[in-house]
Computed example of a mutant assay.
Amino acid sequence: MNQRPRFVDHIDLAALRTAVNCSRLFTKYLLNRWGAPSLIDDATLIVSELVTNAVKATGNMDEHPKWSELHDLKLIKVRLVGLEASVVFEVWDTSEDEPVLTEAGDDDEGGRGLFLVEELASRWGSYAQPRGKVVWAELPVYARTPGGLPIRQRKAPADPSVQPTQHDLGLLRRVRDGLQDL
């Protein structure tokens, strides 16, 4: 982050399944306090996925863990950094294993977390820390239309030879008209 942060806050959580919901509530609270409620849906999804991965890597995902399983409970740290044009989410855990973006099959119940982060965030990554790692994602703050809808910037295609899709305005109008007739 080369920009000076406008807002910074963090929370330490036990590496338990409940950390996921706590991190969502924390994120929602901060974004409301920072005056950025339009980011809440994407932000809580990103934080949920990053925290889920951190708990899976270092904690206990059981819905009802036994007391005997909690004797060496690890912590995770969730940090939000509000910049001028984006919010950065950082999740620290004690695992040294780097996150791996995988492709989940159609019938798989999980494995899409980092894919969702990659789709929502303008960029994401990880870096090593003396006792673990930090996985981070940056969510841009989009300009808004007069009606309040976000104006998202298109991501550049991975292959420069691929041209952006041209929209068939006639088809789009027919779809719009068909939806209005419903």
Rank of each mutant, 00 (worst) to 15 (best):
E119Y: 12
Y29N: 08
T18Y: 04
S86I: 02
N2I: 14
S68T: 13
L171M: 12
L169K: 14
G178K: 07
Q163S: 10
A143F: 01
Q129H: 11
G111P: 07
M61D: 12
D41F: 08
S38H: 12
K155N: 08
V91D: 00
V141P: 00
A85V: 11
S126D: 00
V47K: 00
S161R: 03
Q180K: 15
K133M: 13
I40S: 09
A54V: 05
Y127W: 08
V141G: 06
N53E: 10
G111H: 04
T44A: 02
V135G: 01
G178Y: 12
N53C: 11
V8Y: 03
L101P: 00
E90R: 01
D41Y: 15
Q129L: 10
N21P: 08
R173L: 08
E138C: 11
S23G: 14
A137K: 02
L75T: 04
T52D: 14
P37Y: 06
R131E: 08
L83M: 09
Q129Y: 03
E49L: 08
L114D: 03
L31G: 02
S38T: 13
G59F: 11
I46P: 03
I40A: 01
L13M: 04
T27K: 07
D108W: 12
F7I: 05
L80Y: 03
R79A: 12
D41M: 05
R112Y: 13
W136A: 03
V91K: 00
L75R: 11
K28M: 14
S48H: 04
R173H: 08
T58Q: 01
F115W: 08
V175I: 15
N21M: 11
S122R: 05
K133H: 05
T18Q: 13
T27G: 09
I11F: 03
D9K: 00
A156D: 09
P65K: 04
Q3L: 15
R154Y: 14
R154S: 13
L70C: 07
G105H: 08
D12V: 14
T58V: 14
D168V: 02
P99F: 01
R154T: 10
L30N: 03
P150V: 04
L179S: 01
H71R: 10
N2L: 14
R79E: 12
G132K: 11
A158W: 05
A57Y: 14
M61F: 02
W124L: 06
G178F: 10
N2R: 10
D93G: 04
P146T: 02
G132N: 06
A43L: 02
R144P: 04
W67H: 14
G125H: 07
E96P: 04
R152K: 15
L172M: 10
G105P: 06
A121S: 04
K74I: 08
D72I: 11
D159F: 07
P146C: 09
Q3E: 15
C22W: 00
G35H: 10
V91H: 04
Y29R: 14
P146S: 13
K66L: 01
G148N: 09
T94A: 15
A104V: 05
L116F: 10
D97M: 12
A143S: 13
R24D: 12
R79V: 13
R123E: 15
N2Q: 14
L30K: 03
K155W: 15
S95I: 12
V47S: 02
R112F: 14
P160K: 06
G125Q: 07
R4G: 04
N32S: 12
